[in-house]
């Protein structure tokens, strides 16, 4: 049994310690907002926060998350109130297919925590998620909007 703390709640799951955190979250915990895109830390679709740090969960063993606070896309909103990043996403109509957006939002949320008013260059450096639909122009606008909200 492995004990995880996800979105503030404790959960025990029966998995091999080497299982990628992504699959433990999706299959053993049952939270599917975190997506699989590449499995090799290239695309960012699987991004979650581990003790506040944006982490590509496909390449992170579940055992390394023990004792840490894991936050997934489902854990961002508090009591049904969306975060300012999520609100900016809605305001700017960012998602197209939406598949990459959980990871995108998790990455952006951390960026805004460390750099509340990021420049375009900060965004370019920090946000390396792949979006095959090509929503980047809206993503950038929404990041600035969230920073100024």
């Amino acid at each position: 049994m492995i004990h995880l703390t996800i979105n503030g709640k404790g959960v025990d799951i029966d998995v091999d310690p080497s299982t990628p955190l992504l699959w433990a979250i999706r299959e053993n915990v049952g939270l599917t907002g975190t997506k699989y895109g590449c499995g090799i830390a290239q695309c960012g679709a699987c991004t979650v926060h581990i003790d506040g740090a944006a982490t590509r969960s496909c390449s992170f063993p579940v055992s390394a998350a023990v004792g840490k606070q894991i936050t997934t896309i489902e854990g961002l909103a508090q009591n049904g109130v969306l975060t300012k990043v999520q609100q900016a996403w809605i305001e700017h109509d960012v998602p197209q297919c939406g598949y990459c957006q959980s990871g995108m939002i998790m990455a952006v949320t951390e960026l805004l925590k460390s750099k509340p008013k990021p420049t375009d260059a900060d965004i370019d450096n920090a946000i390396t998620n792949i979006c095959r639909c090509g929503t980047f122009q809206q993503v950038r606008a929404a990041i600035h909007a969230a920073a100024n909200a």
């Binding site: 975190t34 997934t72 489902e74 809605i90 939406g98 959980s102």
Partner: peptide, 8 residues
């Protein structure tokens, strides 16, 4: 279809 795509 946007909101659900921002909350997973």
């Amino acid at each position: 279809d946007t909101k659900d795509k921002t909350t997973g």
